[in-house]
Design a protein around this nucleic acid. Structure first.
Lengths: 369, 369
DNA sequence: TTGTATGCGTTATCAC
DNA sequence: GTGATAACGCATACAA
C-alpha cells in the first residue's frame, strides 16, 4: 500500500502556505527585541542574550539589570528567531487520533504536565483517525522543527515511512497506544494488552462463563492483536472452546457493536460472556442486552476495556481493564527526555516499554471480587 | 487581585529557556533548503521561494520544476525562518482548562477541522484550570508569535490583562465558554446561557416541580451568572418561591455536589426538582438519590447541562442542555478568519456572538416530550 | 565578564 | 519573470 505516493509532496509543501498567494499587508506593531534592552542598558545584544539564557559567564548584577529591563519593556523572546538560530524549539509535537477519547485525553494531560516540568511545550494535533491527515501533520510538525514527536497512530497506519523524515533528521519519535509493527526506528510505550486480554477473559471464566465471545478491533493493530492473543490464551488455559461465530474483528463503533450483538443473539446458541476491546462497545452490548431483556450479569456477563468513566455510571456498572493513562504519559516523557539526552551524544536508542494493566471488577460480571 | 505582580515577568522569560544553562551540542543532520533547490535547478533562491509560495509572477514551468525538485529532495519549509521573515506563523493558539471535558473536546475538534480548511494549524494547550499556567501559556504562545489566540478561561480568571500584550501586538484574541466580564478588547463566542438556564428550569416546572433547587457554578463566571439569571427568571415567571437553602454556587465537582445533596435532603423540606450547571453534578445528584432510595423522576426530577455522553447512559437517563459544540467551534473560526482579514486593514473589531442552546428531554424529568 | 561579527532559512525590495 | 541583496531576532565563535 504505497499510500505515500498518492499524496504528492508538492501538496504537502503548499499546504503550509495559503492556497492563494497573498501579500502580507498586516502591519504588526514593532516588538521589543534584545537590541532595545541592550540600548537601554548600554550593553551589547550578546550580553543580553547570555543573561536571558542564564549563561554562567554573566555578572549577577548584569543579569538582574537585564531581567528588570526586560520586564519593564515587556520583552518576550521571539521563539522563531531563537529556534532558527539554535536549531531547538523546546517544543514537542503530539499526534493523536482524537482527543475526545477518554484514554487519550488523560495521557495527553499527563504528558503535558510532565513535559512542562522539564521546560518543554506541547503542540497537540488530532489526526481524526485519517492517515492522510496524520501524514500531513507529521509534515507540518517537521516544518515547525519540533524537538521530538509523540504519536498514537490511526487504525489505517500500517506504513510508518512518513515519520522517516523526522527520524533521519535526528528528531526522536515515540509511539504509544496504537503502535506500528515492524518499525524499529522509534521507541514504543504501550499497555500490556496481552495480559489485559488475558485477565479480562479469565474474569469471565471465573465468573462462570463457558461460552465467551470477543468483540475485538481490527487485527491490523497490534493493540487488538495482543488483546485477542490474551483472550485465546485464557480460553485455552481453561480448556474452553472458541466459537468462530462469536469472534468479531472490526472498528469499535456503537453501530458495529450492535450488529455483532444482533448476529450473536439471533439464533439459539448464545454466548454467556462477552469481552469487548473498548468500553463504547461494552456499553452498546449492555444496551442491546437490556433492550432484549437479557439480564446482565445473570444471563450475560460483560467486560470492557479502558475503564472509561461511563462504565461506572451505567446500570449495571461494567467491569473494565484499567490502562493507567497517567503512568503511560509519564513513561512517555521519561523515555523522551532520555532520548533527547542520548541524542545529544548521537546515540539514539530505541526500546519498547510496557505499562501494566489492571482489571476493575464491577457489576457486569456479577458479585465483586 | 493583582495576581500578575506575583508572577514575575523574569520568571516567564526564563521559562522559555531551560532553567539551567546548557550548551547545545546536538548535531542535527543538514536540512535541505531552498538554496539546495536553487542550486539543483540553476535558479536563484528568490525564485524558488516565490514558486513555493505560488507567487503569480512565476512561469508555470518553473513552478512545476521547483515542486518536483522539492519533492525529490524531500524539502520542507522551515517554519521558523519563514515566520521570522514574514511575521506570520499560520498557527493559532488555543488555551483551554482541560481537554478531557466533553464540551471542550468537541469544540476543539470543530475548531481544528475548520481551521485546517483555511490552512491554519492549531496549538492546543491546557491550563489545568490554573490561572498561573494560563498566564504562562499566554506568554509562551506570544513567544511563538501565533497569529491569533482562542481562550476558554479558568474559573479564577477575573483579570484578563495577561492577554493585553497579544492584543496590543495586533494578535486577535477570542474567548469562548468561560468569558471575562468587562473586557472589551476581544471577541466572544458563547452559548446562550441565560436561555439555557431558563428552559432547563421551565422543563422542571412543566414536569410538575414546585420546589426547585439550583446547584450552580461560582457566580464569578459569566457562564453561571447567566444560567442562574435564567433560572430566576423562569421561577419568577411561574410565580414559584425560591428557597435560598437550595441555591449553591460552588465549583461543580462530584464532592461538592454530594455535599449539597446531603444538605438539602437532610431535613424534611426537600426539593422535588434540581437544575445543575453541569452533568457531572447532575450525575452525582442522581447517584445520591439512588443511594437514598429517592425515586427519580418520581420524587425528584433532574436537569443537567452540556449533554455529556454519560447523561444518556445513566439510569434513568438525564435531561440536559445541549450546547452544540460543533456550532461553537465553527463560529469561533468564522469570527477568527474575519478578524485576521480585518486586522490586515487595521480595523480590529470586537463582538459578542451567541450560539443557541436546546433542551434534550430524557427520563430524569419524567415522560418525554 | 563583555563586545564584535556572523549566520540560521526565508521572504521582500529592488533592480534588471 | 527572474536575480541580487538585505533583513527578520537571536545565539554563538572568537576576540578583547
Amino acid at each position: 500500500m504505497k499510500k505515500i505516493a498518492s499524496l504528492p509532496l508538492v501538496y504537502l509543501i503548499q499546504k503550509n502556505s495559503k492556497q492563494e498567494y497573498s501579500i502580507n499587508n498586516v502591519k504588526k506593531p514593532q516588538q521589543n527585541t534584545i537590541l532595545d534592552i541592550a540600548e537601554a542598558l548600554k550593553l551589547s545584544p550578546a550580553t543580553i542574550s547570555r543573561a536571558l539564557n542564564n549563561h554562567p559567564y554573566v555578572k549577577e548584577k548584569t543579569k538582574k539589570d537585564v531581567f528588570e529591563m526586560a520586564a519593564k519593556l515587556g520583552y518576550r523572546r521571539n521563539q522563531m528567531a531563537s529556534g532558527l538560530r539554535s536549531n531547538k524549539t523546546n517544543t514537542i509535537g503530539l499526534i493523536v487520533p482524537r482527543i475526545s477519547m477518554f484514554f487519550h485525553a488523560e495521557v495527553i494531560t499527563a504528558i503535558q504536565n510532565s513535559l512542562h516540568s522539564y521546560g518543554y511545550n506541547l503542540i497537540i494535533c488530532q489526526s481524526n483517525d485519517s492517515l492522510d491527515l496524520e501524514m500531513e501533520l507529521a509534515d507540518t510538525l517537521f516544518s515547525s522543527r519540533v524537538d521530538a514527536l509523540i504519536v498514537a497512530c490511526t487504525l489505517q497506519t500500517l506504513d510508518c515511512s512518513h515519520f522517516d523524515k523526522l527520524i533521519e533528521n535526528g528528531t526522536p519519535v515515540i509511539f504509544y497506544d496504537r503502535v506500528p509493527t515492524g518499525y524499529d526506528k522509534a521507541s514504543i510505550v504501550k499497555g500490556d494488552d496481552f495480559n489485559g486480554g488475558y485477565i479480562a477473559t479469565k474474569k469471565l471464566i471465573e465468573a462462570g462463563c463457558k461460552k465467551i465471545a470477543h468483540v475485538s478491533g481490527p487485527l491490523t493493530s497490534n493493540l487488538y492483536l495482543d488483546r485477542h492473543a490474551g483472550f485465546l490464551k485464557a480460553m485455552e488455559a481453561h480448556k474452553l472452546a472458541i466459537n468462530p461465530d462469536w469472534l468479531f474483528h472490526q472498528e469499535l463503533t456503537t453501530g458495529n457493536a450492535e450488529r455483532a450483538m444482533r448476529q450473536m443473539f439471533d439464533g439459539d446458541d448464545r454466548p454467556d460472556g462477552i469481552f469487548t476491546d473498548n468500553d463504547t462497545t461494552a456499553i452498546a452490548a449492555l444496551e442491546f442486552a437490556k433492550a432484549q431483556q437479557i439480564h446482565v450479569p445473570g444471563q450475560l456477563k460483560i467486560v470492557g476495556y479502558s475503564n472509561d468513566p461511563r462504565t461506572s455510571i451505567s446500570s449495571p456498572s461494567i467491569t473494565s481493564v484499567e490502562q493507567f493513562p497517567d503512568a503511560v504519559g509519564k513513561k512517555i516523557v521519561n523515555v523522551l527526555i532520555d532520548l533527547l539526552k542520548n541524542n545529544a551524544e548521537n546515540l539514539v536508542k530505541t526500546g519498547v516499554f510496557t505499562i501494566p494493566v489492571e482489571l476493575i471488577s464491577r457489576a457486569s460480571t456479577g458479585v465483586n471480587k
